[in-house]
């Protein structure tokens, strides 16, 4: 095989050659630092505020965003069952579910350290038309697009960030 890597195309060698050629601007151009800053992931969003304040902030944000929620039960004040109309322009008025359900739950991780968790909880449609029962086999059940859910959570996180 005569497959090879062209030596003069390696960044370090290219740079050395260009500097040796005495180009004035060459010295001022630095290589792109492709820091592979691995994205650090967290579950939900964390908070050190007082639990009831956190819940209050979330209800205010949901209200500002036009979402609705079920009245919380006495024994579970830390869970909010949200229903959020996500209306998009339909093509040939196909019946597409437009009410997304999300469960927002506050967890205590340790003293003064709380976690707000968001969970997707299915769709309904505002005209109350029952959803066509999924007729496909279990295996194909999982053609689920997270993007509408991700979009609404970014809206809520932005509202919380702006309010706070």
């Amino acid at each position: 095989s005569t497959v090879a890597i062209l030596p003069t195309s390696l960044p370090q060698i290219h740079r050395a050659n260009l500097l040796a050629s005495g180009l004035p601007t060459a010295a001022s151009i630095s290589p792109l630092v492709n820091k592979k800053s691995k994205t650090k992931w967290h579950f939900g969003i964390r908070s050190r505020s007082y639990p009831l304040d956190v819940m209050g902030e979330i209800y205010i944000a949901l209200k500002n965003l036009g979402a609705e929620w079920a009245k919380p039960s006495e024994e579970d004040l830390w869970t909010i069952r949200v229903r959020w109309k996500y209306d998009v322009s339909q093509k040939n008025n196909e019946v597409v579910p437009d009410l997304m359900k999300i469960v927002i739950q506050l967890f205590q991780i340790e003293t003064n350290n709380y976690l707000v968790d968001f969970k997707f909880d299915g769709w309904e449609n505002s005209r109350g038309i029952p959803l066509p029962l999924s007729k496909i086999t279990d295996d194909e059940m999982c053609t689920f697009s997270a993007y509408p859910f991700l979009h609404l959570t970014t809206r809520l996180i932005m509202e919380l960030a702006v309010n706070s």
Binding site: V3, A4, I5, L6, Q12, L23, A26, S30, P31
Partner: peptide, 18 residues
Amino acid sequence: GEALMRRSDDFEGVYTCT
């Protein structure tokens, strides 16, 4: 040539063959 100075050091290089 100057624009290529931007290339990051982990660029693998250009492959040649015959």
